[in-house]
């Protein structure tokens, strides 16, 4: 499965970035399940529980032999995936961050550019 930034599932919420459906469509069409990270406007009080539950999933799926990947967005704070908080939580458990691909606006501009950027990653 792929852990993705909220932006990729809900691009219409991000006025300064392309309203691009391509990452969602590429992941969907590749047969991967999605674990969506919290939006940037996440209430701080909820963040700890959410990040902890994502770390639980990375740990559990990893232990069971599932492929777990992470796709972030370069132009968003924390790559849109709360990268430092997630890394800190995983580090405390002795678990490595999933294989990660961070995209740029040009990568999500078209279906072709997205497929080119993610094609080799979503193996």
């Amino acid at each position: 499965m792929v852990i993705i930034a909220d932006y990729f599932l809900n691009p219409q919420q991000y006025e300064r970035l392309p309203n691009s459906p391509h990452v969602y469509e590429c992941v969907r069409d590749s047969g991967y399940g999605i674990i969506k990270m919290p939006p940037l406007a996440m209430p701080k009080v909820a963040l700890t529980g959410w990040i902890s539950s994502v770390a639980d999933q990375i740990q559990e799926y990893g232990n069971r032999g599932f492929t777990v990947l992470l796709v972030g967005m370069n132009s968003l704070p924390g790559k849109g995936v709360w990268a430092s908080q997630l890394k800190k939580e995983l580090s405390a458990r002795g678990v490595e961050m999933p294989a990660t691909k961070n995209l740029s606006p040009s990568d999500v501009a078209s279906r072709d550019s997205t497929k080119k950027s993610l094609g080799g990653f979503l193996r």
Binding site: M1, V27, R28, Y32, G33, I34, I35, K36, Y61, F66
Partner: peptide
């Protein structure tokens, strides 16, 4: 959004219920 979470034999699609 993630059919991997289903218990064995209850997933109906590979990933997203598109």
């Amino acid at each position: 959004v993630n059919q991997n979470a289903k218990v064995a034999e209850f997933a109906r699609l590979p990933g997203v219920v598109s």
